[in-house]
């Protein structure tokens, strides 16, 4: 057995006549952190949603831990419960406390009994340093805290990998740090992660590989030090120079 957690092969996705993903291949090994970068509207979010089948690909195949999840007859709900997802705008369940947000998947999806689920959920809240906010509702939390709760919600189901869709883009600059800190810690702990992000500093320190996408294709990929200093492709170079100037 290899330690390949995720394999994408020839992923294509269109919305109407708009072709968003064109023949994307990607392998993610267990414990790896891959950061997807590239201009907005390039298909990074769509690719993440293809992976957990929220928007199933039109063509192409996906394997999770060696099992093809794009095959016919696969239980998509079960697949999704083993892939965590963290959204740009958090999408915490607004009528539930932080604790219930983390616990509900355990109780209503995994069928864990309530007491065990409470213990597990508290453990995940501690992991994102929010145990003391367990009884708070989303509206009572800052954006950074909400995003950390949503990371705990994803962690609670013990996922094979976690997808992050621009997790800090909706946050004020002073709040991004606390979220990136939690994500860096997960990377060190060996969590497998695919992250769409524009955070260069984070990508440099936490990513095993940077995947640069443009116009629905993977243009180039490589380790951060190579990608940020001496990318091979003109498009990559231009992009990193432009977002480098902003920093």
């Amino acid at each position: 057995m290899t330690d390949l957690t995720l394999r994408l092969e020839g992923i294509c996705k269109s919305f109407g006549s708009l072709s968003v993903l064109k023949d994307v291949d990607l392998d993610v090994n267990k414990g790896e952190t891959k950061v997807l970068m590239g201009p907005s509207g390039t298909g990074k979010s769509t690719l993440l949603r293809c992976i957990n089948l929220l928007d199933p690909p039109d063509t192409g195949r996906i394997w999770l831990d060696g099992r093809e999840i794009t095959a016919k007859g696969i239980n998509v709900d079960e697949v999704r419960s083993s892939i965590g997802m963290v959204f740009q705008d958090f999408n915490l369940f607004t009528h539930l406390t932080a604790l219930d947000n983390v616990r509900i998947g355990l109780v209503r999806v995994k069928g864990v009994d309530k007491k065990t689920a409470t213990d597990m959920a508290m453990e995940e809240l501690r992991r994102v340093d929010l145990a003391e906010k367990a009884a708070s509702y989303p509206a009572q939390l800052s954006g950074g805290q909400q995003q950390r709760v949503s990371i705990a919600r994803a962690l609670a189901l013990k996922p094979r990998l976690i997808l992050f869709d621009e997790p800090t883009s909706a946050l004020d600059p002073e709040l991004t740090g606390e979220v990136l800190k939690v994500m860096s810690r997960l990377a060190e702990d060996g969590m497998t992660m695919v992250i769409a992000s524009h955070e260069i500093d984070f990508a440099r320190s936490a990513a095993d590989e940077i995947v640069f996408m443009a116009d629905g294709r993977i243009v180039e990929k490589g380790p951060p030090d190579v990608m940020f200093t001496s990318p091979q492709q003109v498009r990559t170079r231009d992009f990193f120079r432009r977002i480098g100037e902003r920093h």
Binding site: D77, E78, R80, S81, M85, N91, F93, I104, V109, L157
Partner: peptide, 23 residues
């Protein structure tokens, strides 16, 4: 109710009807 609520519920593996019922 925001569409993100349904999306997040599906993303943690809830079926459509469970998401309707509980979220």
């Amino acid at each position: 109710v925001g569409s993100g609520q349904m999306l997040a519920a599906r993303a943690i593996g809830m079926s459509k009807w469970r998401a309707i019922r509980f979220i």
